[in-house]
Write a protein that binds this DNA or RNA. Structure first.
Lengths: 203, 203
DNA sequence: TGCAAAAATGAACAGCGTTCACTAAATTTT
DNA sequence: AAAATTTAGTGAACGCTGTTCATTTTTGCA
């Protein structure tokens, strides 16, 4: 028994070593530079070994994104102590942006990069992904209970609001804001969100 | 003279043949499948030849995106005949989404893909890009002259509104809407936009 | 017709993700 | 303890990518 336990532990450890190393390289140097060969070299294994632990690069990247969603969910969780739902919604947006700016590589992988087709919306992993979305929908519903967003569907609203914060972030992270030269882009980002916030506050 | 004219004409023609072929392949099969070799093969030239007409793949893709922006601008131009600025703004959003759904490969290249760093915001090309953005900013300013969006900066608003439509489209095109299973995504897209429209209508 | 300039070529380079026959190590069986 | 079996790790090789460049072919002119 104890011998089999050790084997499984070793497997888990190597699995995690690959994952952590890949995540770190990815965070530091981005997707392109993080090649399977480079990861293998970083942990002193041959490239083929990685494929005993991850089916392909997509699966590895998906596993990394699960890490990302864990951190993401922590960022969103700071709104829990805010009682007023409308204020909670606004802080949620700010925290969303903060995460993306603090962890741009993760955000890109999680929300912008070509999807790995894999079971992205299923299984025990992705918990934090679903949870995060639920946080948004729930706070919207609470806002509606207080009389906001009258006549709208909370699902439509959730995509609208998610799309709003994602949109300005996606433009920012993919350098599509070059025509905005008046302010620092990070400032503009927040100003655009605050404009949105102040508009929905009275809705 | 006439002989040199012909030579230049031939050069322009091959330039355009490469461009059109690449654009078509790109539109049909996407970025990944459109390799330099595949383009060369499609026009019965060797791979090296393309590099006499385009510095690298980035430059070729940029040239294709210029085509995309020309079409894009045409989509946006249908709002010209709408007098009421607020209504014009809303139709602008709908046309924006229509373009993205009609030409997803172009939209991806223009607004989502990793930027080619190149002079994306400069030079004689990109005219339609700047023009399109000006259309948005102008209509916002007109809305403000009619008393809308009081107390806001038109630049902030332009990023907010652009970000709104871009956001839901980017989530849609990159398949990040899997948790929305109630409606067809294209319908949800429009519903989210209409929710946004109805909210800003009273602002 | 001969010659210089321009254009087109395609092999070669360095990289990528991925596979798989093979070696080496660890574990179980005899 | 030795042999057999299972497992882990290897790294060369496959087919692909964008790109370069010495070489060949084509072109235009004297």
């Amino acid at each position: 028994m104890t011998i089999e336990d050790r084997r499984e532990r070793e497997k888990r450890e190597l699995h995690e070593l690959i994952l952590k190393t890949a995540a770190e390289m990815f965070r530091k140097h981005g997707y392109e530079k993080t090649s399977m060969r480079a990861i293998a070299q970083a942990i002193d294994y041959s490239p083929g070994t990685i494929y005993r632990y991850f089916k392909d690069k997509d699966e590895l990247m998906f596993a990394i994104s699960v890490n990302g969603f864990r951190i993401f969910y922590q960022y969103l969780s700071v709104v829990r102590h805010i009682d007023n739902p409308m204020e909670r919604l606004q802080v949620l947006g700010r925290q969303y942006i903060r995460f993306a700016i603090d962890h741009p590589a993760y955000y890109d992988l999680m929300f912008i990069m070509p999807d790995p087709i894999k079971g992205i919306g299923e299984g025990e992993h992705w918990e934090d992904g679903h949870r995060s979305h639920t946080v948004l929908v729930d706070v919207i519903k609470e806002c509606m209970q207080e009389g906001h967003f009258k006549g709208h569907d909370p699902i439509d609203l959730s995509l609208m609001i998610w799309g709003q914060v994602h949109g300005i972030l996606a433009l920012y992270l993919r350098h599509r804001m070059e025509m905005y030269t008046d302010k620092k882009h990070e400032v503009l980002l927040n100003d655009a969100l605050e404009a949105f916030n102040s508009i929905i506050r009275n809705s």
